[in-house]
Simulated scan of single mutants.
Amino acid sequence: MEAEFRLLDPAVRSSPALLADLLHPEYEEYGTSGLLWNRESIMAALNARDAPSPRPITTSRMRGVQLAPGIVHLTFDTESGPHRAHRSSIWRLTGGAWLLYFHQGTRFDLLAED
């Protein structure tokens, strides 16, 4: 969970070196946009000159389950401005460090309570 929280930090997301330290070489993501990303494409998008500045991200309901030795699945919700998403991350212990191997985000809206 500590590595996920670091990855959500705007300072880490805007630093190519810090971001690279957390992404597995075979990283893949199904983004909330519906696009498929890999390590190179997500790093390029987050660090492009015209990329918007990363906004603070609030997390809730984070929980983790160990799937196998060295593999952890995290699920949680995020909120950043008006955007909310259910998230799923698979972290893999690689060379003594936890690296994000796979991530998926699915947008959702809060239903108004009657």
Rank of each mutant, 00 (worst) to 15 (best):
R49P: 00
R13D: 00
E2D: 13
E29Q: 10
L22H: 07
R92K: 11
G96P: 08
Y30E: 14
N38K: 03
N47A: 07
P10T: 11
A68S: 11
Y27M: 06
L18C: 08
R39I: 12
W98M: 03
T78W: 04
P54T: 01
F5V: 14
L100E: 00
D114K: 13
L74E: 01
S60G: 12
G34N: 08
L35E: 14
G95M: 05
A85P: 02
S14P: 01
N47V: 07
R39G: 07
F108V: 15
R61W: 03
G95V: 04
H103M: 12
N38P: 01
L67K: 10
G95W: 03
T59K: 10
E26C: 03
A48Y: 06
T78D: 10
R84D: 04
F108H: 15
A44P: 01
F108A: 14
L22G: 08
F5R: 15
S88P: 09
Q104I: 12
L46Q: 00
L111N: 15
H83K: 11
S53Q: 15
A17Q: 15
Q66S: 12
G105T: 02
G64S: 14
N38A: 03
P69G: 03
A20W: 12
D21K: 11
Q104C: 11
R61C: 03
E28R: 11
R84F: 05
G31C: 07
P25W: 04
R87E: 12
L36F: 04
R55S: 13
P56D: 14
S41M: 12
